[in-house]
Design a protein around this nucleic acid. Structure first.
Length: 124
DNA sequence: GCGCTGACGCGAT
DNA sequence: CATCGCGCCAGCG
């Protein structure tokens, strides 16, 4: 049955949304990262499609950015402003459509760029 | 069925 | 840091 493939497709989009919902406030993730967490490595575009047609106002789509940490929308665009606005509302520092994050994070577990691995003098 | 486009990612220049 | 090219796959005319 071809429905199997259709079901899988639906499930994929479903997991993508789930991955986006899994992003805690104040943190951000990339499209590729979201796709990866959804079990769809290399399908960042699919993640974008998922957000484009989610239809869920409660979905933290604004926490999803490009791999470079920049907002996917062109600067000045209405969505661009909206995303930038929401990020700032959560305490995320945004500069010219770019999220002020620390250097590249090595641990994929920290895929959610939020926690900057800076060396804290106190171990714990 | 074909080609273009797109809320992308990454390496190379 | 900006730009280009390729890969990826789904939607649309």
């Amino acid at each position: 049955m071809a429905a199997a493939s259709a079901r899988e497709e639906n499930d994929s989009a479903r997991r993508i949304l789930a991955a986006v919902r899994a992003i805690p406030p104040g943190q951000v993730a990339g499209y590729g990262e979201v796709a990866r967490r959804a079990g769809l490595p290399g399908r960042a575009r699919l993640a974008a499609r998922g957000l484009a047609g989610d239809g869920d106002p409660a979905l933290p789509w604004h926490r999803v950015l490009r791999a470079d940490g920049r907002i996917a929308f062109p600067e000045g665009a209405p969505e661009w402003r909206e995303q930038c606005r929401r990020l700032r509302a959560e305490g995320v520092h945004v500069e010219r459509g770019r999220v002020k994050r620390d250097r590249s994070v090595e641990d994929l577990d920290a895929a959610v760029w939020g926690p900057p691995p800076r060396k804290s003098r106190s171990a714990g």
